[in-house]
């Protein structure tokens, strides 16, 4: 057992857990943040992606000890109160989800993609960058549309801040 200290969605968290605990289990089982999903558990699907210090990584492939002291953001931490994050709003408006299972991971990856590609985001780049996120429902078309739409909205939101 070890005690790890993290900041999760802006709140300080301290948890004493077995060293074999994966971040996704800490989030879902100890912190009741069940928005982060386990799709494959073999590091392939991206349903479990969260931000660790701003980078989109697979929480099913991360031991909590590895990120002791880090800042974690999950799907629950991106809206501002009632106001959806522009990426969430774009997924809703563009029908970017069907069953929704992959969506938290898609959205966390997509925010990271937009952050990394300020000006050069086109359809091909979005498709390449989403390689680590698998969706069984949508055929990706509306997901790509959502991300491109959100890229514009995030720029506007940033300019307004």
């Amino acid at each position: 057992m070890s005690t790890v200290k993290l900041t999760v969605n802006g709140k300080s968290v301290s948890a004493t857990v077995e060293d074999r605990t994966l971040l996704v289990h800490l989030l879902r089982e100890n912190l009741n943040l069940t928005g982060t999903h386990v799709g494959c558990d073999t590091s392939q699907c991206g349903a479990c992606i969260v931000h660790i210090d701003g980078k989109a990584v697979k929480s099913c492939t991360t031991l909590v000890g590895q990120i002791d002291g880090a800042n974690v953001t999950t799907i629950e931490g991106i809206a501002k109160g009632d106001q959806l994050h522009p990426m969430q709003a774009a997924f809703r408006d563009n029908h970017g989800l069907q069953c929704g299972y992959c969506t938290p991971g898609m959205i966390m990856s997509a925010i990271d993609i937009v952050n990394r590609h300020a000006s050069d985001l086109d359809e091909e780049t979005v498709r390449q960058e989403l390689e680590g996120n698998i969706c069984r429902c949508t055929g990706y078309h509306n997901i790509v549309k959502s991300v491109l739409d959100a890229a514009g909205r995030m720029k506007v939101a940033q300019a307004a801040e």
Binding site: G46, A56, V57, K58, T62, D112, G132, N133
Partner: peptide, 9 residues
Amino acid sequence: LGDPAVRYR
């Protein structure tokens, strides 16, 4: 190599 999440780690 891999996907963006793999490349971060």
